[in-house]
Simulated assay, not measured.
Amino acid sequence: MIEKVRAYYDTFGMREWQRLERTDEGRVELYLTCQTLSSYLPKSARILDIGGGPGRYTLWFAERGYQVVLADLSPELIKIAQEKVSASHVASHVEEMVVADARDLSRWKDASFDAVVALGPFYHLPDAVDRESAACEIVRVLRPGGRAFVALMPRYAFLRRTLALKNEQHRLIDPSFIYHVLEQGIFLNDQPGAFTGGYGVRPEEIEPFFSRYGLVMETLLAAQGIVPDLQEELTRLAQGNPAAYQAMLDIIIRTASDPSILGMANHLLYVGRKQS
């Protein structure tokens, strides 16, 4: 399964770099994530960006003076990151860019990072043993008091995704597919080259899961806030009424942790602190 996930992201190329700035969904996610990172990161830190793809967040960290290590499952996305970092004025802040798997961070010593950012790996780990390995590894390389920022997907997001894609809608009448998504959180795709190997969480299970590995939850957010299906309208608002757009962004930030919206989010962002 991991090879299918790697192959899927290898085909992304520049699309993954552009997604966070040039798509409606990506812009809201980028804004909310950066606001959250700014709120919880210390003024100086060494950060592991695991699953960081082409380096969008790695560069964001480097531009703010952090020391960063970027790792990703996809060699193709790492190549793009290397090009982007080399062309930047902050390359000295990026220590290395390597291919690595979130389940095995043995390349790095215990307690070697002030923060670990994992904005992709956990919703591609349908096997419980793999999720446990990734959680253990993230906590192991964190220093006491360090923070983990982890992206997750709720189970309903996979059904909504299936409904939205015409060539995948046939799966909605497949009882086995529905059972695996709703009861086990497992999303396997029968479309060649498409998103697959997904794992969807129940929001109420997130805090106890990470607490088993020594993390204390500080917040859990819907990464697109209350507008997961209205982001095109939000973009039009930005163009026609910038003041109202900024007011709406402020509302999105203020309400992103409302428990009533978490299960219907496209992505979730967990922030946890490693106990001393």
Rank of each mutant, 00 (worst) to 15 (best):
G146W: 04
L234N: 06
R56Q: 11
G225P: 14
R27P: 00
A148Y: 02
T23E: 00
D229H: 14
Y66Q: 15
E96Y: 00
G52H: 05
P228F: 04
G263M: 03
Y156W: 07
S211G: 05
S260F: 02
E83W: 01
Q246W: 11
W17V: 01
A7M: 07
V139P: 05
L188R: 13
I252Y: 04
F210P: 12
Y213G: 06
S44C: 08
F195S: 10
S260G: 06
L230A: 10
E183D: 12
N266G: 10
R171L: 14
A256F: 00
L249Y: 06
P203N: 06
E63G: 14
V68C: 09
M14N: 13
L32E: 00
L37R: 12
L142Q: 07
Y270W: 03
F149C: 06
L73H: 10
F61M: 12
L59Q: 11
N189G: 08
D127K: 02
C136G: 15
H124S: 05
T33S: 10
I47D: 13
D10V: 13
K43T: 15
G197R: 01
E183W: 00
H89R: 11
I80R: 07
L41K: 06
G52E: 07
V94G: 15
Q224T: 13
D190M: 01
P242L: 08
A247F: 01
A222M: 03
A128T: 09
M153W: 00
Y31V: 03
E21I: 01
I50N: 03
E96G: 14
T23K: 00
V117C: 12
R147H: 11
L41D: 12
H180V: 03
D258V: 05
I138N: 01
I251L: 08
M14D: 10
L125N: 07
P144S: 12
I252S: 04
L41E: 11
Q67T: 15
V139W: 03
L268A: 11
I251R: 15
L37G: 10
Q231M: 12
L32W: 00
L237S: 08
N241M: 08
A256L: 02
A247S: 15
R46Q: 10
E3Y: 10
R19I: 00
Y270K: 05
